[in-house]
Amino acid sequence: MTELTLAKALGSGLRRALSDDDKVVLLGEDIGTLGGVFRVTDGLQRDFGKDRVIDTPLAEAGIIGMAVGLAFRGYRPVCEIQFDGFIYPGFDQIVAQVAKLHYRTGGNVRMPLTIRVPYGGGIGAVEHHSESPEAYFAHTAGLRVVTCSTPQDAHSMLREAIASDDPVLFFEPKRRYWTKGEVDEDATGLPMGKARVVTEGTDVTLVTYGPLVATALDAAVAAADDGISIEVIDLRSLSPVDFDTVSASVQKTGRLVITHEASESGGLGAEIAATLTDRCFYYLEAAPVRITGFDVPYPAAKLEDHFLPDLDRILDGVDRALGRVNSLTGWSA
């Protein structure tokens, strides 16, 4: 076990993947000489060479399209998209080619490529550097969409994603890059598709992922002071979602709160609320509650704290789910 930041844990995952399989190649803007904007790929080009850790020009459609060509020929390319908002020029390649090639060729062609995307806000950047575009990709069949919240998961899930024969959108919570944790590089198990019960509870199920897992845990601790027992679930996989784990929890607690940074409308929270209402209708004591970013473009740095779900907003959501007096409105739900 080694204590690593989440960013370093991703880097060590990439390093292991490059060592274990010579078909793994990294492509991206500034990932080689510079080691990436967030230094995730620091030292990899030095150790594995310019042919395996490839600095590209600014060309997201080109990077992802080239990765498709490499995947066709048996490589396992790992593309880094520098910031969430920079993925849109490559969107066409992802949804029209990457997601569909396996299906449209009747399974003859596999697309074992991984697209790493630092995402989310909270670092004082602005739109294009703070967005949470995961729902666009979760809506697209054929992609696996995952996100991590701890250094151990970052390391293990990234290696699992690279080894997967399916294309994986790997969303990295950029404001948690500097979170430290113990990492066992030899850990076995395949965490990517399985939601994690972070802390057990009996009153409310709080579903989240990525950057807000830490905030949800804070909410669980704060609520415990009030005698409320929250079960926090880290989804890990956003497509497909491990609904079995969430259902089991909601059948126990009868109450569901979902929180994510992305805007509310058409977001993951809507999908989870709809599916859980369907699956657990007779267990639910209250309507599912969503605590999300607002339906506005990502705001300026100075205003982002108003946009991002924080401890207070999540606790208010928990109160609503429990039918308690809501501290924002003073009204009972």
Binding site: G62, M66, G69, L70, F72, D92, Q93, A96, T105
Partner: peptide, 20 residues
């Protein structure tokens, strides 16, 4: 490496195959 319903979709794919 495939016909393609997206106009110009094959351009970077061929470039990737050439890189391989």
């Amino acid at each position: 490496l495939g016909a393609n319903g997206i106009v110009a979709g094959g351009i970077p794919i061929a470039t990737g195959a050439a890189l391989s």
